[in-house]
Design a protein around this nucleic acid. Sequence first.
DNA 1: GTCTATAGCCGGATAGAC
DNA 2: GTCTATCCGGCTATAGAC
Lengths: 208, 208
Amino acid sequence: MKDTEINTRIHILDEATPLFAAQGYNGVSMRDLSKAVGISAAALYHHFSDKRTLYLEVMKHSFVDKATAFARSVTNAGTAIEQLEDFIKGFTLMVNKDQNFRALVMWELLDGDEARLKLVAEEVLLEPFKMVYALIQDIDPEADHYMLTISSIWLVLSHSTTAPICQYLPGWETSYSNPSVISAHVIQLLKNNINPAVGVANERVPKK
Amino acid sequence: MKDTEINTRIHILDEATPLFAAQGYNGVSMRDLSKAVGISAAALYHHFSDKRTLYLEVMKHSFVDKATAFARSVTNAGTAIEQLEDFIKGFTLMVNKDQNFRALVMWELLDGDEARLKLVAEEVLLEPFKMVYALIQDIDPEADHYMLTISSIWLVLSHSTTAPICQYLPGWETSYSNPSVISAHVIQLLKNNINPAVGVANERVPKK
DNA sequence: GTCTATAGCCGGATAGAC
DNA sequence: GTCTATCCGGCTATAGAC
């Protein structure tokens, strides 16, 4: 029936997502995937025309509703600064929680052709970008919106992604990979680089 | 003779570097490599015991002397802030110039096993890390040294790496991938987050 | 040191039975 | 929809001549 067909399809995508996230496109074979799903490799081709298509569907499946989730994560309550804080916190939590999502984005940065880069940009980055951009513009019309927005997004992604390598640097503590520590750090960086438009003098946010 | 042996070896590494940087370990076959070098695949095995070893040697070859180059790039002249600025500028330039180096580092973050992560951390990241860390500590003993240092390094790498995807975001201009624009942005972020220890009030750096 | 030839395995994808 | 069987090409790595 239609139901089982759809369910198998989604089951395949669910199994494929962590595999592709961990090993990348070239690192996962259809045979690997068939073992994980529990059906033969040939059966996979009943649901997806080829490996490349399957991979693209994995990305879409992983990214879908992320944009709307971002949008929802901003309550329209509070000042623009508070909204910005809330969003960075939510975004960091999400990025930390959904490791597959984060890894897939990173793989695309290295591996993706033009079409896939565009998909990631529009399906994933666009919404958080517009959100942070608008809030920074609201708070300080004279700030360097573009660079600050990009920096915030990559800082969240970087700090969440690079813990495995940072542990080899002197002074590393496990708390540095804690989402709340990361978001607090990024928020502080941002706050110290935007001036409230309402004429309040720039105040340095205390470190502790 | 010993000379030709060494030269071929280095020739192989030179040809392999851009290939692995562009396609990653799994994306490059020994046949691809043999074509690029101009010898048979079998001959490669005379110089390297297997593909994995060859790849590791590519990384070492690409990373060697980077650490000392970092060290040299800081003149011990000027204030700590000036030294920090000089270093960020030099680091950004280097990262932009040597695209293979940058790509190899990024691949390792996703793909690397423990041993390779350690290699990247110690051969590549350690020296710039220690350098920035010490300078920030010198300028503001109370700053959040660890997070600020990591942020600076990843910001430089991120802004340099992600231009291909950022062009799909609204408001993108090619100048945003310009090394001097990137380093100026990172320096400004840093300056606004460290207080000179000498009792001078924190001053916002003008955007323009 | 480099070659040709090849072993042995794994890859994506298809054919056709059920 | 899923299976088994299979094609065929590419992969790493080795054997052995020169």
